[in-house]
Amino acid sequence: MSNLISNMAGSVWKIVVKEGDTVQSGQELIILESMKMEISLSAESSGVVKEIKVSEGDFVNEGDVLVEIE
């Protein structure tokens, strides 16, 4: 449905959901860390977490798909 996409380059600091979780629109899924700033990423729509594409500590680029939600 709507995937969670990284809005900046940085590392994955915390993943706060598991595959199979039902999430609500606006719910926090992942916290990225870059240049001493933590950015919380939230689901844009409700759904079920199909796949988490990254692990904590991974480096991601802007535009990368982090979580697939359906």
């Binding site: 809005n7 900046m8 380059a9 940085g10 870059s34 240049m35 700033m37 950015i39 802007e62």
Partner: peptide
């Protein structure tokens, strides 16, 4: 700053 000028999100690279 290496950052987005509107959101102020960091922009390394």
């Amino acid at each position: 700053y290496a950052e987005d000028p509107k959101t102020f999100f960091p922009s390394p690279g």
